[in-house]
Simulated scan of single mutants.
Amino acid sequence: MKRRTLLRSATALGAAGLAAGASPHSATAAPSRRGDDPPFRVQVVLFDGVEELDLAAPYEVFAASGHFTDRTVDVRYVALDGPRTVTAAFGTALRAEHAWAPEEADLLVVPGGGYARREDPGVWAEIRRGALPKALAKAPRPGLTISALCTGVMLLSAAGLTDGRPCTTHHRARQDLEQQGGRVKNARVVDDGDLVTAGGVTSGLDLALWLTRRELGTDAALGLESMLEYETRGTVWTPPPGPA
């Protein structure tokens, strides 16, 4: 037990290096583990005008999660017309090294950004352009969970993926989401199985921690909370249990 604790502490310090500016490629270069489970493959979608914290919080949680589980975790930034460099909402240049390939993912994470500025790059521009919503509409398949946070949920809505489904988004976009057919829940995270959505910007942490717990186990989520010095906020909505 002491050896396990020591190993977990050492790997947590290594994970903290990701937050200190290590190359994002290190997330996919984590030491390989020999478990019975296949790798957990996460793709975080980038587009011009994406909110920095929307994408960074889930990316770091999932990238660091591999240090708290025996299962290999592979996390990638992808862009629909990538590989390419995108410019985020506050001017950060980000490189998506991988092309759009949801068929190679277990989890797709769609951040938001730019919803309040309709003429600028961001969610509204992507909805007008149409290519990303169309690609998202074609993405669902058995074994893939599609998630989104903040106004990234509106891209799922434009793709028809939230119609009639329990979901949530940034509080300023909830009315739009409801008018477009989403069954909006007043929760931090809404887990409807293969569709998982979350509220405003910082809820990306809670979305990622919840999905880590769901897919990799409670110990992994607890380890991440300790490393990040962050305790999960809010309520996670899940469907009521069916008849026994």
Rank of each mutant, 00 (worst) to 15 (best):
P140I: 00
A208D: 05
A173T: 13
E229R: 14
E231F: 12
P140D: 09
E229Q: 15
R129I: 03
L161K: 04
F62L: 06
P58R: 02
V196Q: 05
T85Y: 06
A20V: 06
T5N: 12
G143L: 03
F40N: 04
A10Q: 03
W100G: 10
A19H: 12
A105M: 09
K138C: 08
E103N: 11
K2M: 11
A96I: 02
Y230V: 06
H171C: 04
R3Y: 12
A220C: 13
R183T: 00
A137H: 07
L107C: 12
L53N: 14
A93T: 14
D81R: 13
G91F: 07
G193K: 09
L211S: 07
H171N: 09
E215S: 12
A135E: 09
D81L: 06
L80C: 00
G193T: 06
V61K: 11
E215T: 10
T212P: 04
G122W: 04
D36R: 15
E60W: 11
V45N: 06
E225H: 08
G113R: 05
S9L: 15
D176T: 09
V61N: 11
M154W: 11
R129F: 01
T72E: 14
T218R: 14
L6P: 00
V45F: 08
H25A: 15
A125R: 14
E52L: 12
E215Q: 13
T28C: 12
Y59C: 01
Y77I: 02
R172I: 12
Y59W: 15
W100P: 06
R118S: 13
D163N: 10
P241D: 15
G112F: 00
G199Q: 12
R33I: 10
D194Q: 10
V42S: 07
V44C: 10
E229M: 12
A137L: 01
W210H: 15
V86P: 01
V110M: 14
G223C: 00
T238N: 03
D37N: 06
A56K: 08
R95C: 07
T235D: 13
S203P: 09
T5D: 14
T238K: 11
D70T: 14
T92A: 14
S147E: 05
Q179L: 13
T85V: 10
C167M: 06
A20P: 06
A15Y: 00
V123Y: 04
D36S: 15
L107E: 10
E126W: 02
L132F: 01
R172S: 14
S147L: 04
I146S: 10
R8G: 09
G182M: 03
E229C: 14
G223W: 00
E229N: 13
F40L: 07
L80A: 04
D191V: 01
L216M: 04
S157K: 05
V86H: 00
P240K: 13
A57R: 09
A105P: 09
N186C: 08
S26N: 12
R8Y: 08
E52G: 08
G242Y: 07
P111D: 01
T238F: 00
S32C: 11
A29I: 05
G204S: 08
D70E: 15
G91V: 05
L216I: 05
G223F: 06
L80P: 02
D219R: 10
G130P: 08
R41C: 01
A101E: 08
A159C: 10
D219C: 02
L156M: 09
